[in-house]
């Protein structure tokens, strides 16, 4: 962070600049601004972070976010839909759990784990002996987000979730290095 922007942050001012997006949430905001509920939208896309590249980090990766807004959307809707998703992608026999967490744009928020697909929950090197694998973040959309896009937060509720497509692929196929996706090694890519 530059000195000038630190000052701006303290003063509460923010200059408008163009940046590579660090998540796909801007698409959600724009979608809500240009449409009216009921909404059920998924947003796939490439995102960028200033992270050093290693086996589990990449400066560029892929996110899939989704959200649903309407009257009476509840946390049970979120649970039902995410369970359907997890079982469709990882198999019917997995277990799923919600872990309380903090995200700035949802309240309450939760991270979602599935039982480790390698050891079935017993504990192995893939899940770090925990028996669970974190697959996504989720929560009920914060009323301030609705105000920001011009929806009445007393009228509407909704949930949102987001996951890393690269991470899902790594978990699903037991790939231990994110860099493999971007090295264009046909011996690797041909397997899928």
């Amino acid at each position: 962070m530059s000195h000038a922007s630190k000052k701006d942050a303290r003063r509460g001012r923010q200059d408008t600049k163009l940046l590579l997006r660090s998540h796909t949430s801007p698409v959600q905001i724009r979608a809500m601004q240009s449409r009216k509920p009921p909404l059920a939208i998924v947003v796939p896309g490439r995102v960028y972070r200033p992270d050093a590249v290693d086996a589990s980090h990449s400066f560029m990766f892929h996110q899939i976010e989704g959200f649903m807004v309407d009257y009476n959307i509840t946390f049970s809707d979120l649970k039902g839909i995410l369970e359907f998703f997890a079982k469709s992608v990882f198999g019917k026999n997995i277990k799923m759990r919600f872990r309380p967490h903090f995200f700035p744009f949802t309240e309450p928020s939760a991270e979602v784990d599935i039982s480790c697909i390698i050891c079935k929950g017993k504990g192995c090197s893939v899940c770090g002996q925990k028996g669970w694998l974190e697959i996504l973040g989720s929560g009920m959309i914060h009323p301030n987000v609705f105000k920001h896009v011009g929806y009445n937060p007393k009228k509407y509720t909704g949930f949102a979730f987001g996951m890393g497509a690269d991470r899902i692929a790594m978990l699903k196929y037991g790939i231990d290095d994110i860099r493999l996706f971007y090295e264009n090694d046909l011996r690797f890519l041909r397997q899928f």
Binding site: Q14, P26, V42, V43
Partner: peptide, 17 residues
């Protein structure tokens, strides 16, 4: 499940990010 797919620009305003 009835969701629509929406995509957006990879370069965005910081105030929206």
């Amino acid at each position: 499940l009835g969701f629509a797919i929406v995509e957006g620009p990879e370069i965005e305003q910081n105030t929206i990010i």
